[in-house]
């Protein structure tokens, strides 16, 4: 028996060996060597060891804090709205009485297969001063002058949030929809017989049943929102007045636009990673409180 196990083991190792090599070369090695970067200041091809100098500098860097603030704002406003929409949509699309269910599901998931850059450019066009949205609002006489969607700091943030909602709600909905398949109809039937309203059913059956999925989507959305780059880069280019510059954009600028300093950029990346780690742990602790 033992011999067979050993043999299967060996074959198994062969199967995963290749991906381990790839993982080591392209993930583990860069991560380990980035630790070295964090403690040095690189100006182009000259490198000096600065210890925690990058972190001290980062602490005083107002641009770092303001872009981190922007990223957090997107996180705090967009993620809860998106997840709520996603759950509601999932419940509606799970209803047995809904006609053309497959069609609606497809329609809501479709934005997720569009490329980030192309949908961002489309949003930029839609919301430009003489874009479709303004033209439409003017034609139905809702507004008399074009709304400065992309040129007003608050409006620009709203446009980016709208874009994110459009792109990612369907993606999260799929997870909830999958989660709902595991909830037995009998529970709802029993609840109905006991006189529970639809809202009560949602609050006391659906939501608890979806808890692990909510956790998963919340953690994943937190990670991706803190790394937000494509949308602000393409829709507003961080403007106006740097009001939509995210931390990932600032890291990019420090690496590729300004005097290149990969050490400083790596230090910022580690701070963001640490924040994500802390947020993820908190979310898990909150979600698993009763376990």
């Amino acid at each position: 028996m033992n011999g067979v196990n050993e043999k299967t083991n060996r074959i198994g190792w062969w199967f995963i060996g290749l991906s381990i090599v790839g993982f080591a070369a392209f993930m583990i090695y860069p991560i380990v060597s980035s630790v070295k970067l964090v403690f040095s200041s690189l100006s182009g091809d000259s490198s000096t060891f600065v210890g925690f100098g990058n972190f001290v500098r980062l602490f005083h860097d107002t641009t770092f804090w303001s872009s981190l603030g922007n990223s957090f704002l997107f996180l705090i406003v967009e993620v809860p709205i998106m997840l709520l929409f996603a759950i509601i949509l999932a419940v509606v699309l799970n209803s047995k009485t809904l006609k053309l269910r497959g069609f609606w599901r497809l329609l809501i998931f479709l934005p997720c297969v569009t490329s980030l850059v192309s949908y961002s450019i489309l949003f930029k066009m839609l919301f430009s001063a003489d874009g479709l949205i303004n033209k439409f609002l003017e034609n139905i006489h809702l507004i008399s002058a074009p709304i400065p969607w992309l040129t007003d700091p608050t409006m620009a943030k709203i446009v980016i949030i709208l874009a994110l909602l459009w792109r990612w709600t369907g993606y999260n909905m799929i997870f909830f929809l999958a989660g709902l398949q595991n909830v037995s109809d009998e529970i709802y039937e029993a609840a109905e017989i006991d006189g529970a309203s639809k809202i009560q059913q949602f609050m006391h059956i659906t939501l608890p049943a979806l808890r692990p999925i909510i956790l998963f989507t919340a953690v994943q959305s937190t990670i991706s929102t803190l790394q937000l780059f494509d949308e602000p880069m393409n829709i507003t280019n961080g403007g106006p007045n740097n009001s939509s510059t995210t931390i990932a954009m600032y890291i990019y600028n420090v690496s590729f636009k300004y005097v290149p300093n990969f050490g400083y950029a790596a230090a910022m990346s580690y701070v963001v990673m640490f924040i994500i780690l802390v947020l993820s742990v908190i979310q898990m602790k909150v979600a698993n409180k009763d376990d």
């Binding site: 993930m27 860069p30 980035s34 692990p212 998963f216 990670i223 990346s269 580690y270 994500i276 698993n288």
Partner: peptide, 21 residues
């Protein structure tokens, strides 16, 4: 186990996407 894997995934994804230019 799931949560542990998730944290691990999160960390790796976060650092990898931010650092690999």
């Amino acid at each position: 186990k799931f949560t542990k894997a998730l944290v691990g995934m999160g960390v790796v994804m976060a650092s990898a996407t931010l650092l690999t230019a």
